[in-house]
Design a protein around this nucleic acid. Structure first.
Lengths: 217, 217
DNA sequence: CCCGTATTTATACGCTTGCATAACAAGCCG
DNA sequence: CGGCTTGTTATGCAAGCGTATAAATACGGG
């Protein structure tokens, strides 16, 4: 008898392993904060030994960066899906965009925990900050171009400066409501955040948007 | 020769020491994130030995709670000062409130770093979460009562539900702009955030507020 | 079928962390 | 001015961290 206590294992492709490790990292961060994402905890959740992490990532820092990039991608993809789905009127697309960002898949305790954990760390970690900035600017550009189309449709085309201010404000509304929703989801009815946001955006732009009370119902 | 390498020290009152330790904790968190706030780092910055912390706080967790409570107090006090200063028209008070929350003392990298660090941890630490919730609800109540007064002045008193929705939206605008300002202050001119917020709030409520472009200048 | 290689595990190392403890000294009270 | 209280320091400890390294295993190509 060999008495070999060594674990059996299967070899996996690099892509698969990296994905699993990132997913395990996100689970750990969501559950116990970023400080709960230790190398050992991540490895255990991924079902591998701790040393394997350093076979696929130069260090823990790089794994965290990859994990945060995955979070950013998940959030922005959700929003962009909402845009691709409708190629209808600009006002409808803007409303759908707002709704997508304040609905169940994005407004989520776990995603917020990830966001908060990484945002906090981004202050001391310039690499994480870069990942964040990239995703953020993409989001804001999206809002700006949507607003431009909506105002054009309404016959009130706006110059760049006005457009920029609208985008900043609308972005703030979405962000603010998203945070409130994530941190105290029990305080809001289903769809309430989206309705508040759409009404607020409509007031901001001085247009009617499908889905809020002043829109013909 | 005694060869005593032991440090000289002065005895201080309890209040003073606790305040210094909290201040040192905030400095550490702001500088290196919450993970940079180790017992030893805090003690060094406070100019005392590490063991003293446990003489004034049961453990590190309680020190962090006290520090976060100090942050919350600092932020809300700033805003409430803006209210006390003017007992003029409700519209002016609301504008001052918004401006106070989006000006230099509150919009600040360091305060944001503190906020982000604690918010992230609040997900796994129920005591911190309680501290946060308390400060947050106070803020929102303030907004709600201000909005009520403004609408009353405008001759359009609103029922509770409408008031609540307005407060949620306005709170979101302030929060969102605050975050944007803290994270990318270089992207905004001086006072720009406050101007955008006031314009947005004015549009939201359908009233004129002192300090935005449609207000008679 | 066996060898070679790349994946994976296991173990150990150095460091830092929060916390406990005991020695020490500052300042008050008699 | 000497003793006592207690604020304060210094030292040590066990646990946990990220990382380095070498052994062991899976699995494809000869």
């Amino acid at each position: 008898m060999t008495a070999s206590g060594r674990r059996k294992f299967r070899r996996e492709g690099e892509g698969r392993r990296r994905r699993d490790l990132i997913e395990a990292t996100l689970d750990c961060v969501a559950e116990n904060g970023i400080e709960g994402a230790t190398v050992r905890a991540i490895a255990q959740r991924a079902g591998v030994s701790a040393g394997l992490i350093r076979h696929y990532f130069p260090g823990k820092a790089e794994l965290l960066q990859a994990a945060y990039a995955a979070v950013v991608k998940r959030m922005t993809d959700q929003a962009k899906d909402a845009l691709a789905a409708r190629d209808a009127r600009p006002a409808e697309r803007l409303a759908a965009f707002v709704r997508a960002n304040l609905g169940p898949p994005v407004v989520d305790t776990q995603i917020f925990a990830l966001w908060a954990g990484f945002i906090a760390r981004a202050h001391a970690d310039t690499a994480l900050a870069a990942v964040h900035r990239e995703g953020y600017l993409g989001f804001r550009d999206e809002v700006e171009s949507l607003v431009g189309a909506v105002l054009e449709e309404a016959g009130r085309p706006a110059d760049m400066a006005v457009l920029r201010r609208h985008a900043i404000a609308i972005n703030a509304i979405i962000d603010g409501l998203w945070i409130e929703g994530c941190m105290a989801s029990s305080l809001f009815d289903e769809g309430e955040l989206a309705r508040i946001a759409i009404a607020s955006v409509a007031a901001q732009l001085g247009v009617d948007l499908p889905g809020h009370e002043g829109s013909g119902r």
